[in-house]
Amino acid sequence: MLSENTVKEIGLIRSKYHDAQSSLLPALYVVQREHGWLSPEALKEVGEILNVPKAEVKGVSTFYAMFRHKPIGRHLIQLCTNVACMIMGSENLLNILKDRYGLEPNGTTVDGRFSLVVMECIGACGTAPAMLVDTDFHDNLTEKRITEILESYK
C-alpha cells in the first residue's frame, strides 16, 4: 500500500503533465523513494492512480536500470569499478565490503542495512575511487574512509 502522502504527491505530479504516460517515470521515483523498490503491488497501484495500464507500467519500469524490482537494504551503495576507480583501488574496496559486511555485488547484508550495486562510471574519475550511498556522493575513498562513511549510515 502506498502512503497517503505518496498518493498525494503522485496526484500532484499527474497534474503537471499533459498525459498520464508522461507522469509515470516521476511517479515511480516517488514510490521507490518510499519503499526502496517497486513491488508488483506498487506498480499496480501507480497504474490505477494514473490510469496507465499495469502492463505498460511494468514495461516502463523494467526498461530503466534505476528502478529496482527486488527489495533492497535500507541504504544503497553504488560503487564505481570503471577504469579510473579500478586503477585507484575499487576492487580492494569491494573486498573490504565483502569481508566487513558480507556484502557482494547485487547483494544485501543479512541485517538489511546495506545493498551493493557495482556501477560503471559515475563521473568522478579525477577523485577516484568514488561511490554513491543513497543520494550522497563520496570520493577519494580509502579503506579507512569507506568504513567511517558507512558507519554513519545506520
Binding site: P40, L43, P53, K54, A55, V57, K58, G59, F63
Partner: peptide
C-alpha cells in the same frame, strides 16, 4: 503483439519488459 493489444484491441494486457537481449513480451 503489444501494438495489437494496446492500439487495436485496447486491452493493454502485455508489454515489452526489460531491455536489450533480455526484452520479452509479458503480461503484468
Amino acid at each position: 503483439c503489444v501494438r495489437m493489444c494496446s492500439k487495436v484491441q485496447g486491452a493493454y494486457a502485455i508489454s515489452m519488459v526489460n531491455r536489450s537481449s533480455k526484452t520479452f513480451v509479458e503480461p503484468f
